[in-house]
Amino acid sequence: MSTTFVVFYRNMNLGHPNSPGRALLEDALREAGASSARSFQTNGTVVIEAGDAAPREVVRRAAPRLLAVSGYDDAAFVRPLDRLAAILDRDPFAGAGDERTYRETFTFFDGGQEFGAPIPWTNDRGDVDIIEIADGVALSVIRRTGTRAGSPTAEVEARLEVPATTRTAGTIRRLVKAFG
Score class of each variant (00 low, 15 high):
Asn123Leu: 12
Gly97Trp: 06
Arg100Lys: 15
Ala63Lys: 07
Ala62Trp: 09
Gly112Lys: 08
Phe108Gly: 10
Ala86Lys: 06
Trp121Gly: 08
Val59Arg: 03
Phe77Ser: 01
Asp129Cys: 08
Ala94Asn: 12
Pro80Ala: 02
Phe77Arg: 00
Pro120Met: 05
Val69Ser: 14
Pro92Tyr: 03
Ala75Glu: 04
Arg60Ile: 01
Asp127Gly: 06
Phe108Arg: 01
Pro120Ala: 04
Tyr72His: 13
Val128Met: 12
Phe106Asp: 05
Asn123Pro: 07
Glu99Ile: 10
Thr101Cys: 06
Asp98Gln: 04
Leu67Thr: 08
Val128Trp: 10
Ala85Thr: 11
Thr122Leu: 15
Asp124Lys: 14
Gly116Pro: 09
Ala68Thr: 11
Phe93Cys: 11
Ala117Val: 05
Phe93Asn: 04
Phe93Arg: 13
Arg90Asn: 13
Pro118Cys: 04
Arg61Trp: 00
Asp127Gln: 03
Ala85Tyr: 13
Ala85Asp: 09
Ile119Ser: 12
Arg103Ala: 15
Ala63Ser: 07
Ala63Gly: 07
Arg83Phe: 13
Gly112Ala: 14
Ile87Ala: 07
Val78Ala: 01
Arg83Lys: 14
Phe77Lys: 01
Phe106His: 03
Leu81Met: 11
Phe77Asp: 00
Arg103Ile: 09
Arg61Ser: 04
Asp91His: 14
Gln113Lys: 13
Ala68Leu: 12
Phe77Asn: 00
Ala85Ile: 06
Glu104Pro: 02
Ile119Glu: 02
Tyr72Arg: 03
Val59Met: 05
Asp127Asn: 15
Gly112Asn: 14
Tyr102Ser: 12
Pro64Asp: 01
Gly126Leu: 02
Phe108His: 08
Pro120Asp: 07
Phe109Ala: 11
Pro80Arg: 08
Phe77Glu: 00
Asp82Glu: 15
Ser70Trp: 00
Arg90Phe: 05
Phe108Ile: 01
Asp110Val: 04
Phe106Met: 10
Tyr102His: 15
Val128Leu: 12
Ala117Ile: 07
Pro118Ile: 06
Glu104Trp: 10
Thr101Leu: 04
Val69Pro: 00
Pro118Val: 12
Asp110Lys: 03
Arg65Met: 02
